[in-house]
Write a protein that binds this DNA or RNA. Structure first.
Lengths: 202, 202
DNA sequence: ATAATGAATGAATATATTTTCATTATAAAA
DNA sequence: TTTTATAATGAAAATATATTCATTCATTAT
């Protein structure tokens, strides 16, 4: 008898994860077109053939990563629906992102992937879904800001502009982190939320 | 006799400009690898062959655009060396950028090109120069912020963090503008400079 | 040892993209 | 109307990249 089902399953999962990590890193940094399957296989430390045993095409692999990113967005959306204090939600969330940026590239890569997605022509259903979720998250955030404004926690600027600027600036940090790497500096929470929160706010 | 030198020159300049505009738009949006010379020729409304009459390779074309972007950076660096009031320099500059974003895609495309450049392996001399200029501009800006802080115009946070966040957030706005296009919202000057400038500052 | 099972390989093939270049088109002057 | 200089074309050749698949490898139980 050969290996057990579980052993094979574990092997498959292990290589899938290696492909996953290598691919997200490369796609985030270089984009879909500039990343060759050769690069991915090399990054994952496997052969090209094995990659094709796991994913029918390079695009399929990309789409799986997009779905994974969408799951991340769903979590954020859920979080922002909580009844907690808006200012605390935003502070906590922003802090986590800044820490993620400090720690490693994973989260920044995810954000970049989201953008890469928007640039492809005839988007797959996965990409379309991701884009819809981005929209939902944006609206959610604008509403959360309004709620905070009503509680006197946030500045009285246009909530949509603020929500838009919030995500754009985080995207910018992610992009900068991925592209210039070593010269990246994590800005303080205070700087990143200054447009939203008064200086004297506890 | 055929056309005059001047006439031929004008023709060449005209098509060069068409190639230039089409290419910057496509490179900014899709990246170098995802943009085919076919796309560029189509965008410029010319044949592929003609494109190759003007640029030896696709990479040469890209490098020319990079040099063009570097010239833009040089102008900014020069401006930030002025003796004018730091707060006014930053306000004026930021306002211009926000207006550029409103007006058309040209400036956002330039910023995106700068990022695309950082992602290519073995960068051309043009790209290396652009990256050096980015570094110079960043340092310049950090010093300008320090100067403003000494004048009591800016908040007392870490100047490098602020300069870094400033460019990252503008990059983020540019990227968002290019990728999601129609859903783009221009944030107010107040929002974009809130991390830098006290609310009550005249 | 060896048979069985599925992972893993990488050279061969298919496909896409870039680059070349022989040819054609255009406008002005003779 | 013919000549001339150069712009402009696009199909063919060169190159790069994605995908397939016949073959090998590794592990385990008998």
């Amino acid at each position: 008898m050969p290996r057990t089902k579980e052993q094979y399953e574990a092997m498959r999962i292990a290589t899938r994860n290696r492909i996953h990590s290598a691919a997200i890193k490369l796609f985030a940094k270089k984009g879909f077109a500039a990343t060759s399957v050769h690069d991915i296989a090399e990054g994952a430390g496997i052969s090209i053939g094995l990659m094709y045993r796991h994913y029918k095409t390079k695009e399929d692999l990309f789409n799986e990563l997009v779905s994974y990113a969408a799951t991340g967005l769903e979590k954020v959306i859920e979080r922002f629906q909580s009844d907690e204090s808006p200012i605390e939600l935003i502070r906590q969330f922003t802090l986590e992102i800044l820490n993620d940026f400090e720690k490693d590239d994973a989260f920044a890569e995810l954000l970049m992937l989201m953008n890469q997605s928007s640039t492809l022509e005839d988007p797959s259903p996965q990409i379309q879904y991701l884009n819809e979720q981005s929209e939902v998250m944006f609206n959610q955030t604008a509403r959360l800001i309004e709620k905070g404004q009503n509680l006197g926690q946030f500045k009285q600027e246009n909530a949509s502009e603020m929500a838009f600027y919030y995500f754009a600036s985080l995207q910018g940090l992610a992009m900068t982190k991925i592209t210039i790497r070593k010269r990246y500096i994590t800005p303080s929470l205070k700087i990143v939320t200054a447009f939203l929160i008064e200086d004297d706010q506890d």
